[in-house]
Design a protein around this nucleic acid. Structure first.
Lengths: 100, 100
DNA sequence: TTCGATGTTCGTGAAATATCGAACAAGCTA
DNA sequence: TAGCTTGTTCGATATTTCACGAACATCGAA
């Protein structure tokens, strides 16, 4: 639960909130890649995301359904609060439009 | 928001969740009083509680309504999650039944 | 096989946080 | 006034967490 107490991670959750799977390379955050790796690990360990490896690259998805089952409403509340407080806006997707 | 990332504080919120005002002395937590004071300050600074001083003793209340207005559903989710994960159970009320 | 790209792991350092005990301030009470 | 209770503040310490760069592992491509 404390996994959501870091702005970077909240930002990651926001980016992933649309339910789409994202490649590591799509994620843009103002930290070194080792740090990003750390945050993704924390999220994964906390059960918030799922990581799939394909060749040399990783794809990450938000486990929205599992979360909804386990902590109903948590995601919505967190996202709304994050938006309201402008938390995590430092994380975004890189340019390139994503293939549907 | 990160104010809820400490088990002691979650426990305090749980104890206060019934909406009743509680005296400092009613709160039982496995920490030194200076530490408890610190946690109560964090909660107050985060806008989660309100403290009223009366003579030498303090009374604290959960600002449930304000929270509901600001982060709708947050409290419910946190409480449910805390119960589910058994977080904060180390905080309780001292014996003595409280006057209705 | 050699090279390049992609994440992970490791070692380290800095910053935040939790915790305690002691000292202190304020207000009842005898 | 003296003393007790109650809670805050201060100083110190320990733990956790964030962050970085460097080294490493793995896989695909040339």
């Amino acid at each position: 639960m404390a996994a959501l107490s870091d702005p970077i991670r909240v930002g990651l959750v926001r980016v992933l909130a649309d339910g789409r799977e994202r490649g590591w390379g799509e994620l843009r955050a103002p930290v070194a890649k080792s740090t990003l790796s750390h945050h993704l690990r924390v999220l994964r360990d906390a059960g918030l995301t799922r990581t799939r490896q394909e060749g040399t690259r990783c794809f990450v998805t938000l486990r929205a359904q599992d979360l909804q089952a386990r902590f109903p409403g948590l995601l919505q509340v967190v996202l709304a609060a994050a938006e309201d407080e402008d938390v995590g806006h430092q994380v975004s997707l890189k340019d390139g439009p994503q293939p549907t």
